[in-house]
């Protein structure tokens, strides 16, 4: 499909949606949001990009095979689950640490964040694998 309006709007929208998806991912820390929701927004962004500019453009923009994203995400999720080993706690227990910030205050991060980023990548990768396959098959 070639539509000037759609392809111009897509360039703005995709970036905006990707930023929003990262926002949702980080917000999931304590409030509604999280890796899964964020990743669906991100996949929607790429799906829009694929509709406007074609599946090949998405593959170029991604730079990596979506299936690699799935596997990297899976690896991150497992690493997030394995971290409690350091403290001798069972698998998938949340471990937390405070990273001090330059101007006072601190950043409270833990293994669930790594797990969530893993989920994010797995879902983006899986959804994109399906979408791109179908897009390339049908068109």
């Amino acid at each position: 499909m070639h539509s000037l309006i759609l392809s111009t709007a897509t360039r703005f929208l995709t970036g905006l949606m990707l930023v929003f998806s990262v926002f949702l991912l980080l917000r999931g820390h304590n409030e509604p949001g999280g890796g899964f929701v964020g990743s669906l927004v991100a996949s929607t962004a790429f799906a829009l990009y694929a509709i406007a500019l074609g599946a090949q453009a998405v593959r170029r923009a991604l730079r990596v095979d979506p299936r690699t994203l799935v596997m990297v995400g899976l690896a991150l999720a497992i690493i997030g689950g394995l971290l409690p080993l350091i403290e001798g706690a069972p698998l998938f227990t949340g471990v937390w640490t405070d990273i001090p910030l330059p101007r006072g205050g601190y950043l409270h991060v833990g293994s669930p964040l790594i797990f969530d980023v893993g989920v994010y990548l797995v879902v983006v990768g899986a959804v994109l694998t399906v979408i791109l396959t179908m897009e390339e098959e049908v068109l």
């Binding site: 299936r67 690699t68 596997m71 899976l74």
Partner: peptide, 9 residues
């Protein structure tokens, strides 16, 4: 799972 990830990457 770790084997799968390593074998893919």
């Amino acid at each position: 799972f770790v084997t799968a990830i390593l074998a893919f990457l």
